[in-house]
């Protein structure tokens, strides 16, 4: 962060050092690691930390983006530009059967779409390339069931997570030993909060997708959520007419499943200010979390990241 270190490290310096330590352990002990890159702000921070961890070398693993086919167009162009600029290897995977069957959130609903194009697609990609360790940007503060997730989370050959059988994590000594076929999800940002992420992006001037900043965008209000009409695949109901509104996104995913918030925050400072003053938590913008209480835990046991 700064060229001269002070005796007392700041909380961001400690979080940074911890994440770098974790990444280096994985690279030293796993055979074939990969970084799951979702193009969102947490991925942006995770990738930035990877660039730091191995400097002057490049991160010794590829990035993997599971593309559902329904991501915002701006996410894809941002992704391609960034990867080219950093000179990294990017793998993308779309579930070929889902694609052939025309699976999408409008026709099949959020649950089916998420399961086939996201959960199943991720498993396919991990199996295809035989990755034995995958970095993910999940944080413990996102959701109650994640508070107990380990930093190193083991999955069976069928990608199942067993919350009753997790290894204790002592000090910063990570047990990376695993059986044939098992894989590890590693969460270097476990101890970061949403505010930490934004502060770090601000401090380190990390580029993020412009969708996080407020701008005039065409949206319709559907079931109380503002959905951006990102392309012509969105079937409009009779009473719906896209209108231009000043909106931004607090999380990014598939555009039909990601609610926009009305906002004028068009700088990082404004975003952080707005976040500190708002009264709703970040995952509320995600349609998939509302299904039922403890739904995330259920998804995780099924193999959702």
């Amino acid at each position: 962060m700064s060229a001269t270190a002070q005796i007392h490290l700041t909380h961001l310096q400690r979080l940074e050092a911890e994440a770098i330590h974790i990444m280096r352990e994985v690279v030293s002990e796993a055979q074939n690691p990969v970084m799951l890159y979702s193009v969102g702000k947490d991925s942006a921070v995770m990738l930035h930390l990877a660039m730091k961890a191995f400097y002057p070398s490049k991160p010794p693993f590829p990035l993997l983006h599971v593309d559902t086919g329904w991501k915002f167009k701006e996410m894809i162009s941002f992704r391609d530009d960034l990867v080219a600029k950093l000179g990294l290897e990017l793998l993308t995977h779309t579930n070929p059967e889902g694609l052939a069957d025309g699976i999408g959130p409008f026709t099949h609903g959020s649950a089916v779409h998420t399961d086939i194009m996201k959960t199943q697609a991720l498993k396919q990609a991990l199996d295809k390339y035989e990755f034995d360790a995958a970095f993910g940007g999940a944080r413990r503060d996102e959701e109650k069931s994640r508070a107990k997730e380990r930093i190193f989370s083991f999955r069976s050959a069928q990608h199942q997570w067993d919350p009753k059988n997790q290894r204790p994590e002592l000090w910063s000594i990570y047990n990376v030993q695993k059986h044939e076929g098992e894989s590890i999800r590693v969460f270097p940002l476990s101890n970061w909060t949403e505010l930490d992420i934004w502060q770090y992006i601000h401090l380190e001037q990390i580029p993020i997708v412009p969708l996080y900043f407020a701008a005039e965008r065409p949206v319709v209000e559907r079931d109380g959520t503002l959905i951006m009409v990102d392309d012509d695949r969105m079937p409009l109901r009779d009473d719906e007419q896209p209108i231009l509104k000043n909106v931004r996104f607090r999380t990014l995913g598939c555009y039909p499943l990601t609610g926009a918030v009305e906002s004028t925050a068009d700088t990082l400072q404004d975003i952080i200010q707005e976040m500190l003053l708002t009264r709703t938590s970040e995952r509320q913008g995600r349609v998939i979390d509302h299904d039922q209480s403890a739904s995330m835990e259920k998804k995780k046991q099924e193999g959702y990241f």
Binding site: A3, I7, L9, Q13, E16, A17, E18, H21
Partner: peptide, 12 residues
């Protein structure tokens, strides 16, 4: 970022 003049316990 740059070379450091010093680094302390806890830093990577």
């Amino acid at each position: 970022d740059s070379d450091l003049d010093e680094a302390v316990s806890g830093q990577s």
